[in-house]
Simulated scan of single mutants.
Amino acid sequence: MIVSIRRISKAALLAGVLLTAACSQSGEAPKARTEFNIGWSIYAGWMPWPYAQQAGIVKKWADKYGLKINVVQVNDYVESVNQYTAGKLDGVTVANMDALTIPAAGGKDTSAIIVGDYSNGNDGIMLKGGGDLKSLKGKQINLVELSVSHYLLARGLASAGMALNDVKTVNTADADIVGAFASPDVTAAVAWNPQLSVMKGQLGAKEVFSSANIPGEILDLLAVDTATLKANPKLGKALAGIWYETVALMKRQDAEGKAARAAMAKLAGSTPEAFDGQLATTYLYADPKAAVAATESPALVTTMTRVRDFSFSKGLFKGAASADAVGMSFPGGKTLGDPQHVTLRFDDSFMKMAAEGKL
């Protein structure tokens, strides 16, 4: 079973902020290096990374640039982001909301160099007993608070002319959400796959909104420390090369593509059938040109505005006076928030090199 973990707690957030504060005051500029650690956790859209290591693709591209790249599994998603924030990892696989609220909000200058995929149905709002989104008004809704599930709920309610204060959320761990929804007392919940797929099979359950209704908003990224990247641009080239070679292989419908997906499923502790089911609701940017277009689109600025406004409203920018406190930059010189305090950068330069065959 694929454990698709995209959760965050206030405790984890504060830990990340404190770790950043501790490690960002050293004043030492990163130097040119040859060995790097990239963290990942289990999620359908991130399984190309461990497979690439297993298949020798990581070594191929690292060797090309005279590097050694260690692709390191971290069992807990939040812990992987916190380790990156603390400087124990040079890069990490991370959702756009968490890249903003953990390292960037904590002051760690971070560059999203690969926009790998977006949830296209992997996250959904479930309701029992019939009805639609408007039927959620006044209900208790079980979900992982301060996660992408919480963000999805806010977007779903807004689409029906409601707000979060029209419902009562009940914080429920991702490991407990299926059992909670099975209880007669729970009539609404928000979850992600694989839990979501199990909940859809419960008698009388209906999905009333999903991430497919907001395509491109729940993004999965590869983020790298900006200063490290500047000192070692070959790292970005190698990572882009690894990603696009691997994703091109897994998208193939021949025997080799099938074998690659089966190997990824095994690495995720899943079956090939279950893994393919997860990929069906994950929009992979296999073509670097498409990834560049998505990164340069004004829609990304709109999405990140929504994400940062939601995050600020939930207190995830600790001590900030406004949502503008954390600056973000986008291709073409566009800046969102404080231009003097940019700590999250959407950098499409390496994806462009891949698109132009210049890696």
Score class of each variant (00 low, 15 high):
Ala268Trp: 00
Ala290Thr: 13
Glu245Gln: 05
Tyr283Arg: 11
Ala325Asn: 14
Pro288Asn: 10
Glu273His: 03
Ala293Asp: 15
Arg308Gln: 14
Gly236Ala: 08
Ile242Lys: 00
Ser329Phe: 07
Phe330Ser: 04
Thr305Ala: 05
Leu279Asn: 04
Phe330Pro: 01
Tyr283Met: 12
Arg308Asp: 10
Asp254Pro: 09
Ala323Phe: 13
Ala299Leu: 08
Met304Lys: 01
Arg306Tyr: 14
Thr281Glu: 08
Leu235Gly: 01
Lys314Trp: 11
Glu273Pro: 01
Glu256Asn: 10
Ser322Pro: 13
Thr281Leu: 10
Ala320Asn: 14
Thr246Gly: 00
Met264Trp: 01
Gly319His: 14
Ala291Met: 12
Asp324Pro: 08
Ser297Arg: 06
Ala263Tyr: 02
Ala293Arg: 12
Asp254Glu: 10
Ser322Arg: 12
Met304Leu: 07
Ile242Pro: 00
Ser329Asp: 13
Ala255Thr: 09
Lys318Trp: 15
Gln278Gly: 06
Thr282Leu: 09
Val247Cys: 00
Ala238Tyr: 00
Gln278Cys: 07
Pro331Glu: 06
Ala263Ser: 08
Lys258His: 09
Ala265Ile: 05
Pro298Leu: 04
Val292Pro: 07
Ala263Asp: 07
Tyr244Arg: 04
Gly236Phe: 01
Val301Phe: 01
Ala299Gly: 06
Thr302Cys: 07
Pro288Asp: 10
Phe312Met: 13
Val301Cys: 00
Gly241Glu: 00
Val247Lys: 01
Lys234Cys: 10
Lys266Trp: 03
Ala268Phe: 02
Trp243Leu: 07
Lys289Tyr: 12
Gly277Pro: 03
Ala291Tyr: 11
Val307Met: 06
Val292Phe: 10
Ala286Gln: 11
Pro272Leu: 05
Gly327Ser: 15
Ala238Gln: 02
Trp243Met: 08
Tyr244Asn: 02
Ala268Val: 02
Asp254Leu: 08
Asp254His: 09
Lys289Ser: 15
Ala294Ser: 14
Leu316His: 09
Phe312Leu: 12
Trp243Pro: 00
Ala299Asp: 15
Glu273Gln: 05
Thr303His: 09
Leu284Phe: 09
Ala323Arg: 11
Tyr285Phe: 15
Ala286Ile: 07
Phe330Gly: 02
Leu279Val: 06
Phe312Trp: 14
